[in-house]
């Protein structure tokens, strides 16, 4: 029974991991760049939420959508004002740019909040659980998982059934030619960066509701996001979901077997995948 519970808990944690990976995967899929500041976007969003909820005293149901909107605006503006200028055939400038941004955000957070552990208090929801047979499941982890699944579904649907999604996929395929189809690729990139930042902030807030964070948590989150998209398969949103779930299960089982292992088994899994199936679990081998 304990193993079923462990497995389910791993799956539920995997939903959160998948969300971390999803934002990074979108950026990579459309712009072919890695956003090193992805973890800081998540943690920065969470700290802004902590400031809004704990210090100003706004209820969480208002805080979360406000932070999501702010994150979206931040991502959009960042892309329009900065990253679009350095995008080109060379992947290094955007990489360095976002690396610099991650350091700036991290230091700003330390300056403003100190290095203490902090969390977002969700009250009774945090400890509520439901009993299914002999298995006890947390309501909040279930809720997070449901939100993650719903977001993956909604994104998939909009990519394939809306004009926005069509333009986004076309821009990902051939950004040079889409201008001739009336698409402003810089705007498409900015929309994607906004969406990615909002997804990052959401997963950061969920992390802070589930446990605690410090201004230094971003790097570790970025690592998880990278592992998720490499394990699942680069540039595919379902790859992120699979990668997240698998990584979550491996982390939880690893900790159950060996409580001192930390994320070790996740890293080992990454190594195995890189050796055995470098295109990822859901990825197709690509020739280009």
């Amino acid at each position: 029974m304990i193993w079923i519970e462990t497995l389910i808990n791993g799956l539920l944690l995997g939903g959160l991991y998948a969300l971390f990976g999803l934002g990074l995967s979108l950026i990579f899929g459309v712009m072919k760049i890695a956003n090193i500041a992805h973890g800081e976007m998540a943690i920065g969003g969470a700290f802004l939420a902590i400031a809004t909820a704990n210090f100003i005293g706004l209820p969480l149901v208002l805080t979360v959508p406000i932070i999501l909107l702010m994150a979206w605006g931040f991502g959009f503006a960042l892309q329009m004002a900065v990253i679009n200028r350095v995008l080109g055939s060379d992947p290094m400038p955007p990489l360095l740019m976002t690396f610099g941004l991650s350091i700036v955000v991290q230091n700003l957070l330390v300056e403003m909040f100190g290095a203490d552990n902090r969390s977002l208090d969700i009250g009774a929801l945090g400890t509520a659980s439901i009993q299914i047979g002999n298995t006890s499941l947390g309501v909040f982890p279930l809720l997070m998982f449901a939100i993650a699944l719903a977001l993956f579904g909604a994104l998939h649907w909009s990519l394939h059934h809306t004009r926005w999604g069509r333009n986004l996929r076309a821009t990902s395929d051939d950004p040079e030619i889409v201008g001739m189809m009336g698409i402003d690729r810089r705007r498409v990139f900015a929309m994607v960066m906004g969406l990615s930042a909002a997804l990052a902030a959401l997963s950061g807030m969920m992390l802070a509701m589930r446990g605690s964070i410090t201004p230094f948590s971003g790097g570790e989150r970025l690592l998880i996001a990278f592992e998720v998209i490499v394990i699942g398969g680069l540039g595919s949103i379902w790859g992120s979901l699979i990668g997240g779930l698998v990584l979550g299960i491996v982390h939880v089982i690893g900790l159950r077997l060996d409580p001192a292992s930390g994320p070790l088994y996740g890293h080992l899994l990454l190594l195995v995948i890189l050796l055995a199936k470098p295109e990822g679990l859901a990825g197709k081998a690509r020739s280009r």
Binding site: R163, R166, N167, R169, A170, V178, M181, G182, I183
Partner: peptide
């Protein structure tokens, strides 16, 4: 979808 993209303008 390729054809529809053409009508974007």
């Amino acid at each position: 979808e390729n054809l529809q993209i053409g009508a974007n303008t």
